[in-house]
C-alpha cells in the first residue's frame, strides 16, 4: 500500500476509500482534544477527570455537614454523587456537543473532516470522561465510606447511556440553533440554570408533592437521575415512576432534528 516511489515522494494516497474513515477521523479528533484541552498543565487529560472528582469531593464534604440524613440510603456523599454526576454528564455533553462545530471550525476546513465527525468526537470524549469520573467517584466512595450497597451495573450503564444520548441529542439540536441564532446560547444558559434543582438531585421525585411530580415527570433528566439511583441503591429503591422511553425518545427526536438541520446548513453556518 505504501511503497517508496522512484521519484522520492511518498505515494500515500489521501482519502482513497480506506476502511473506517469516520472512525479514524473521530479517533484523531478525540486524541487531539485529549492532548490539547489541558495542554500546558502537567498531567494533561488526567485533569479532565481529577478536576470534577476533586470538585465533587469538596462539595460533598461541605454538604455532609449541613445535611446529615439523606432521603435515600444512609450516606449523604453517595446520595449527592448520584444526583450530581448524571446532571454533570448531561450538562457537559450537551454543552460540548453544542459548541463542537465552533471548536473544530479550523479542522472542518479539511474536506476529510465532516461535521458529524466533530459532533460525535466531542460527545464521545465527554461521555468517556464522565464514565471514568463516575467510576472513580463511586468506587472511591464505596471504599472510603465502606458502603453496604449492591449496585445493579446494568441499570447504572443504562442511566449513563440515557444521560449521554440525551446530552448528545440536546447538544446536536442546540448546535444548530446556537449557530443560527447566537442569542440562544444566553437564553439557554438562563433557562437551564434551575435544572439542577428540578432534576431530583436534592429532593428525589418520590418525595415531591403531587403537583410537582405531574409537571417534573416531563423533565427527561429526572429519569436519568432516578435510573442511576435505582442502579446504585438496588434493590431498595424502586423508582416506579421511571421511564426509559420518554428521555430516549426526546433525545432521538432532538438528535435527528439537529443533525438534519446541520446537514442542510452547516456549510452556510461555518462560512460566517
Amino acid at each position: 500500500m505504501t511503497r517508496p516511489s522512484n521519484n522520492g515522494l511518498l505515494e500515500q494516497d489521501g482519502l482513497r476509500a480506506r476502511k473506517f474513515r469516520t472512525g479514524r477521523t473521530i479517533f484523531a479528533l478525540v486524541m487531539r482534544e485529549m492532548s490539547t484541552s489541558y495542554g500546558r498543565s502537567p498531567g494533561g487529560y488526567a485533569w479532565a477527570i481529577i478536576e470534577p472528582v476533586l470538585a465533587l469531593a469538596v462539595l460533598t464534604t461541605i454538604f455532609s455537614f449541613i445535611m446529615h440524613s439523606p432521603p435515600l440510603g444512609d450516606s449523604f456523599p453517595l446520595f449527592y454523587a448520584t444526583g450530581y454526576l448524571p446532571f454533570m454528564l448531561f450538562n457537559d455533553i450537551a454543552n460540548k456537543t453544542a459548541t463542537s462545530l465552533n471548536y473544530s471550525r479550523s479542522l472542518l476546513r479539511y474536506p476529510a473532516v465532516t461535521f458529524m465527525d466533530a459532533l460525535i468526537a466531542r460527545g464521545f470524549l465527554h461521555l468517556l470522561t464522565h464514565v471514568l469520573v463516575g467510576y472513580i467517584m463511586f468506587f472511591g466512595l464505596f471504599v472510603v465510606l465502606d458502603l453496604k450497597i449492591s449496585p445493579d451495573f446494568t441499570l447504572i450503564a443504562l442511566a449513563y447511556l440515557m444521560g449521554g444520548v440525551l446530552g448528545f441529542g440536546v447538544g446536536c439540536f442546540n448546535c444548530y440553533v446556537m449557530m443560527t441564532f447566537p442569542v440562544w446560547e444566553r437564553i439557554w444558559q438562563i433557562l437551564t440554570r434551575p435544572l439542577i434543582f428540578i432534576s431530583g438531585m436534592f429532593l428525589p421525585y418520590d418525595f415531591m408533592p403531587k403537583i410537582a411530580q405531574d409537571i417534573l415527570w416531563w423533565n427527561p433528566l429526572i429519569h436519568v437521575v432516578g435510573m442511576l439511583r435505582k442502579g446504585i441503591y438496588a434493590p431498595s429503591y424502586e423508582g416506579a415512576y421511571l421511564s426509559v422511553l420518554f428521555p430516549l425518545l426526546t433525545a432521538l427526536i432532538l438528535m435527528a432534528l439537529g443533525i438534519l438541520l446541520l446537514w442542510r446548513n452547516h456549510q452556510n453556518l461555518l462560512e460566517n
Partner: peptide, 19 residues
C-alpha cells in the same frame, strides 16, 4: 494547534487522511 508539537500536528492529519 499551538500546544501540539509539529510532529503531533502532522500525526493528526495523517490519521484524518488515513495515511
Amino acid at each position: 494547534h499551538g500546544e501540539l508539537t509539529g510532529a503531533q500536528n502532522v500525526r493528526f492529519i495523517s490519521r484524518v487522511y488515513g495515511v
